[in-house]
């Protein structure tokens, strides 16, 4: 009975410790994430690029899509 209670109480201490750890980790996550958010904003990037004389583009990038001609299989060739 006493041993059982002891073990239970140990668990309670452990939970309290882990909860604190969770809070700290969450806090760290939000902190880092907010740092990242600021770094990846276009305004931050473009400000850093000014000294390298790279400015935001006025035209969108052009995607070139190559259409591959479908190789007709032997059977299709027969039946065409």
């Amino acid at each position: 009975m006493i041993a059982n209670t002891q073990r239970f109480e140990q668990k309670v201490f452990q939970i309290a410790e882990l909860t604190n750890q969770v809070k700290e980790l969450r806090s760290e996550f939000v902190d880092r994430r907010s740092e990242l958010m600021k770094l990846k904003m276009e305004s931050t990037v473009s400000e850093k690029m000014i000294e390298k004389e790279i400015f935001p583009s006025t035209v969108p990038p052009i995607k070139i899509k190559v259409k591959k001609e479908e190789e007709k299989s032997f059977f299709k060739k027969i039946w065409q």
Partner: peptide, 17 residues
């Protein structure tokens, strides 16, 4: 307007490389 315009790439399709 420019930001939104330049964010969407315009696509060019070509058939023969």
């Amino acid at each position: 307007a420019q930001k939104i315009f330049t964010d969407a790439p315009s696509t060019n399709e070509i058939k023969n490389l």
